[in-house]
Simulated assay, not measured.
Amino acid sequence: MKNIEIEEDLYHFIASKTQHIGESASDILRRLVMPESVVSKTEPLVVEEKPLETENTQSTLLAELADLKLLEMPKMVDRFLAMLALLHKYHAGSFASVLTLSGRNRTYFAINKDALLATGSSTNPKQVPDSEYWVITNNNTVKKVTLVKEVAQLLGYSDAQIERLVSLFCPETA
């Protein structure tokens, strides 16, 4: 496998074309640029669906969340970054999908600080711990909760799992 460097806007474009969690950049580009090579016209496409998480992974993630004692963290931004770091840890391969999250005038996630600074004057970007991703942190608590929900949804969590994550992150909004 070869590595190539691409500009950030192209990276965001590729990430925005993801059709399913776990789809690699190569798969996305092949589908967009060489559609005839993705599936032979005579062969049907067979996709084996794998669960995003096993019960063991889910319980491990929840146990680790409980161990973090998020509610003991006095600053919401610290809870927010800890939650995102844990979601990244368990979904590193599909976490790039967060790059598609944006508001009317803002991008919420990027792979460098400058990209977020360019979207507004008071973004206060911080790096998601143990990852290459950056996130805007000057949002209010409700927006942080919404972002956690949207990230979990992108990563394939069910509504019930998302509500459990939110209750561990910010129970007053759950």
Rank of each mutant, 00 (worst) to 15 (best):
V98A: 09
V98C: 13
V98E: 05
V98H: 05
T100R: 13
L101S: 07
L101H: 08
L101Q: 11
L101E: 09
S102P: 02
G103N: 10
G103E: 07
R104K: 13
N105R: 11
R106E: 12
R106W: 04
Y108R: 06
Y108G: 08
F109W: 13
F109N: 12
A110S: 14
A110E: 05
I111F: 13
N112P: 01
K113Q: 06
K113S: 04
D114E: 12
D114C: 02
A115I: 07
A115Q: 11
A118C: 04
A118V: 01
T119A: 12
T119F: 05
T119K: 04
G120Y: 10
S121R: 02
T123F: 02
T123K: 07
T123C: 08
P125N: 06
K126D: 05
K126L: 09
Q127F: 00
Q127W: 00
Q127N: 06
Q127K: 10
Q127C: 04
Q127E: 04
V128A: 11
V128T: 08
V128C: 10
V128W: 10
P129T: 13
P129K: 15
D130Q: 09
D130F: 01
D130S: 08
E132F: 08
E132A: 13
Y133H: 11
W134D: 15
W134H: 14
I136W: 00
T137D: 03
T137L: 09
T137A: 11
N138S: 02
N138H: 00
N139F: 03
N140G: 06
N140K: 07
T141Q: 11
T141D: 09
V142K: 15
K143I: 00
K143W: 00
V145T: 09
T146D: 10
T146R: 09
T146N: 10
L147A: 15
L147W: 09
V148E: 06
E150A: 09
E150W: 01
E150N: 10
V151R: 13
A152P: 04
Q153M: 13
L154G: 05
L155W: 02
Y157P: 05
S158N: 03
S158G: 02
